[in-house]
């Protein structure tokens, strides 16, 4: 009888976004293969190199290094998992606050400037050239300059991230504004909308998908910018303890911190993708 019960029709296979999960077992297998490759390579290095722990520690060495993160809480701190967790929490919080602050300030400035220039032809003529010039300065070359201006302060790191984000978001947002369909804007005009109303009710909503798409790239780069700022000019944060680990020649700890940053980057990207999906439900997608 139980077999008859089992024969009940199954719910239809889900399609749409969920259908993408079909690729997951394969992705998981690839990760396992890479992990195995790492392990084999580290075994080879251990057999042949003088200081394998510096060159390429094994995955087990890296896990064993977790308590050693506690050292960043200050000299004499007991090297325990609990203290390591405290260190991770503290420096992660510092880095994330910097990142989010820089993203919020820089994003607001970038979008704001693009909206102003998108609105006024005159402003565009005057400011577009100089602003694009700012965009072509290699960002990292400005880091020493920010160091001179702000010293090793959190304000300096936030400012640097904000500057980088603003310059990237500005270009992206201005392009998004330019790509808004002229037909739809004309249509709104014939429905009685003033130029300002067209800007508010057509240009602004229509630019969102391209803006959000660009933001995912910006978010990835923002992490890199943040770490660079913390390498050089911070007393705390994940970038700071990463560079400290390097100075101790403790490769296992470096790998731990890199894995942590990868995890955060992934979480941020997924969160943004979720927000993006709800903001852009209306966008026609190519099949």
């Amino acid at each position: 009888m139980a077999e008859v019960m089992d024969a009940a029709p199954r719910p239809p296979r889900r399609t749409g976004p969920a259908a993408g999960r079909d690729g997951r077992p394969l992705g998981f297998a690839v990760v396992l293969v890479l992990l195995a490759a790492w392990w084999i390579a580290s075994a080879y290095v251990a057999a042949h190199a003088a200081r394998p722990d510096i060159l390429l520690p094994s995955p087990l060495d890296v896990v064993a290094a977790i308590p050693r993160l506690a050292v960043f809480a200050g000299p004499g701190t007991e090297l325990s998992y609990a203290n390591a967790l405290g260190v991770i929490a503290y420096h992660s919080a510092v880095s994330m606050a910097t990142l989010l602050g820089g993203l919020a300030i820089g994003g607001a400035i970038g979008v704001g400037l693009a909206l102003l220039l998108g609105w006024s032809r005159r402003l565009r003529l005057v400011f577009e050239g100089p602003l694009l010039l700012v965009r072509i300065i290699p960002l990292l070359s400005l880091l020493p300059l920010f160091l001179s201006w702000f010293g090793g302060t959190r304000t300096g790191a936030v400012s640097f991230v904000a500057f980088a984000v603003a310059s990237m978001v500005f270009v992206n947002a201005l392009e998004a504004i330019r790509n808004v369909s002229p037909l739809v804007q004309t249509y709104a005009r014939t429905l009685g909308a003033s130029a300002a109303t067209v800007y508010r009710t057509v240009v602004v909503p229509a630019m969102v998908p391209e803006l959000v798409g660009g933001l995912r790239v910006v978010l990835g780069l923002a992490w890199a910018i943040l770490l660079a700022a913390e390498f050089l000019a911070a007393q705390s944060g994940l970038g700071r303890i990463l560079i400290l680990a390097q100075q101790y020649l403790d490769t296992s700890r470096m790998i731990l911190i890199v894995i942590l940053i990868m995890f955060y980057t992934y979480i941020f990207d997924r969160a943004l993708a979720l927000v993006a999906r709800s903001l852009t439900r209306w966008v026609p997608r190519q099949k």
């Binding site: 739809v184 249509y187 014939t190 009685g192 229509a206 209306w282 026609p284």
Partner: peptide
């Protein structure tokens, strides 16, 4: 242009986000 003269265009004049 003005709302006293409504225009139906050949192309896809539509507010995609609404």
């Amino acid at each position: 242009p003005g709302r006293d003269r409504g225009v139906v265009f050949q192309g896809d004049a539509i507010f995609y986000w609404r």
